[in-house]
Design a protein around this nucleic acid. Structure first.
Length: 154
DNA sequence: GCCAACGTTGGC
DNA sequence: GCCAACGTTGGC
């Protein structure tokens, strides 16, 4: 079992949207090779996801989700009408992949980027080092444990 | 709205 | 295969 952090712009799709969805949400449109490699090669059903709000007033980890299927081709790359269309991705040889996630929890206490940066225990987090611009990134078991515990607390 | 960081593209 | 130009992300 592994852990990940997914970024989402709350104006576009927030933790509340995920919670309200009821059914699994297809996480497509990832167009970055490093993120693609995580999706295709490492993400597995049952893995935990920290849900992070980016490009907003208070960037923060706001809840958790669960990956609920194996990765498969990102269908939006085949759709000419989609903003994610990519002529170089084919069904025979997909360039981009996606998974479904389902809502697990909304934090009582969101953990802001500011707090993440100030916390010595989280100084090795991908997000505040190399991964500032990566929309899907790995999280260690220790980071997951620490963050989900704090998020669930009042 | 600005700009730093950094990924991608394309000419050579 | 290098690297300059360009585009995007995302915090502030």
């Amino acid at each position: 079992m592994n852990y990940w952090l997914f970024k989402s712009e709350p104006d576009d799709f927030s933790i509340n949207d995920l919670a309200a969805a009821g059914t699994p949400t297809r996480w497509n449109g990832i167009r970055n090779y490093q993120a693609r490699n995580f999706i295709r090669d490492a993400l597995a059903e049952g893995d935990g996801v920290l849900f992070y709000h980016s490009s907003c007033k208070v960037p923060a980890i706001v809840g958790t989700a669960i990956i609920c299927c194996a990765a498969s081709a990102d269908e939006s790359a085949f759709d000419q009408a989609s903003p994610y269309f990519d002529a170089k991705s084919t069904r025979q040889q997909p360039r981009w992949y996606a998974v479904d996630i389902r809502f697990h929890s909304k934090f009582k206490t969101p953990i802001t980027l500011r707090e993440l940066k100030q916390d010595a225990q989280l100084s090795t987090m991908y997000l505040i080092n190399k991964g500032a611009r990566l929309s899907i990134q790995p999280v260690s078991a220790a980071e997951w444990q620490y963050i989900t515990q704090r998020g669930a607390a009042e």
